[in-house]
């Protein structure tokens, strides 16, 4: 509510935002769907940072998870399947004052939006990208997604998915100019909150893969992970996602990993025997595309007209 400014004067904001100020329509996700908890965490992070709702834009593609913008009371852009990243990039391009959040699914981001995923990571535009990875196409009802495990039966591969699942972590880490890669499971609210909070604080594209339950279509996949927390590898570091004793007690497999260590991150990501949870990689210094796209926005009409005249003059005869 109050803030101490650099000149020691007290900044009294005339508005204080409560959780309710970020709550949009009643979520229509299934009971037990992992998306609910992520939505709550996003709202909490907004409240914690006291973000003005009118300055937030929640962008998404198409899928169950892409309904998230409707459940926030902010500006939102529920676009087209696979295209959330370029829409979000355009929104942010000339509006550095807006806080841009992207919600996308494993099909939305890794399949139809694959090209934008690669380039989005490389642009490193200042936004949070939450990938709700339920290892299935939820909205269209149970088709194989790029992260569906091999041999797992779906509506499009009833005898089992042919190919081994894609590894989104190694791919993302492998993209030049990657700046923030984290992974979390939806069923640990504290970790989800802390991860999203840190993602939001980072300037650049914060890529967060959320392993998300879809009890309707792939209950067994995640149930196994929930029942056996040793499958998860908790990443610990003072520069990583903050944990606490309770969390550390649940997840006995832990490793100290410095998020600035890219090779270490790659090794952790490559080892598919465990599901890493935490901050894999963080480079706060990676070039941010906004620094190019934001230039020139404060020109007056007079300056612009002078500019047009200058351009025209070079063709005058």
């Amino acid at each position: 509510m109050f803030g101490l400014k650099a000149d020691w004067s007290l900044d009294v904001q005339d508005r204080y935002f409560t959780l309710e100020d970020y709550e949009g329509a009643q979520p229509r996700w299934c009971t037990g769907c992992g998306d609910h908890g992520v939505l709550t965490a996003v709202q909490k992070v907004c409240r914690e940072a006291q973000l003005a709702p009118e300055k937030i834009v929640n962008v998404s593609g198409i899928g169950c998870s892409s309904r998230l913008p409707h459940y926030m009371k902010t500006y939102g852009f529920h676009g087209l399947h696979g295209r959330a990243l370029p829409f979000a990039s355009g929104i942010k391009a000339r509006r550095p004052d807006l806080d841009v959040w992207v919600s996308t699914g494993d099909g939305d981001c890794f399949s139809i939006g694959g090209c934008h995923w690669i380039h989005g990571i490389r642009y490193n535009i200042d936004m949070v990208v939450l990938v709700f990875d339920n290892a299935i196409y939820g909205l269209t009802k149970n088709q194989t997604s790029p992260t569906t495990p091999k041999d797992y039966g779906t509506s499009t591969h009833p005898t089992g998915s042919f190919l081994p699942a894609m590894n989104p972590l190694t791919i993302t880490l492998g993209i030049t100019n990657v700046s923030f890669v984290a992974q979390v499971v939806d069923w640990n609210p504290l970790l989800v909150y802390e991860t999203i909070k840190m993602a939001h604080a980072h300037r650049g594209t914060s890529f967060v893969r959320i392993i998300q339950r879809c009890p309707v279509f792939v209950e067994d996949i995640h149930k196994e992970m929930m029942d056996d927390p040793s499958q998860i590898l908790l990443l610990k570091h003072e520069n990583g996602i903050p944990t606490n004793e309770a969390v550390e007690r649940i997840y006995p497999n832990q490793v100290v990993h410095d998020p600035s260590d890219w090779s270490g991150a790659m090794n952790i990501a490559r080892d598919e025997s465990r599901v890493p949870c935490g901050l894999l990689y963080h480079d706060p210094e990676a070039p941010v595309y906004d620094d190019w796209s934001n230039v020139g926005m404060d020109m007056s009409d007079e300056e612009k007209i002078a500019g047009v005249n200058k351009a025209l003059d070079s063709f005058s005869i």
Binding site: V59, F77, R83, P86, F87, A88, G90, A93, R94, R95
Partner: peptide, 10 residues
Amino acid sequence: AYAVGSSFAG
């Protein structure tokens, strides 16, 4: 998409 996003943002 970039252009549409930008236009949406004014």
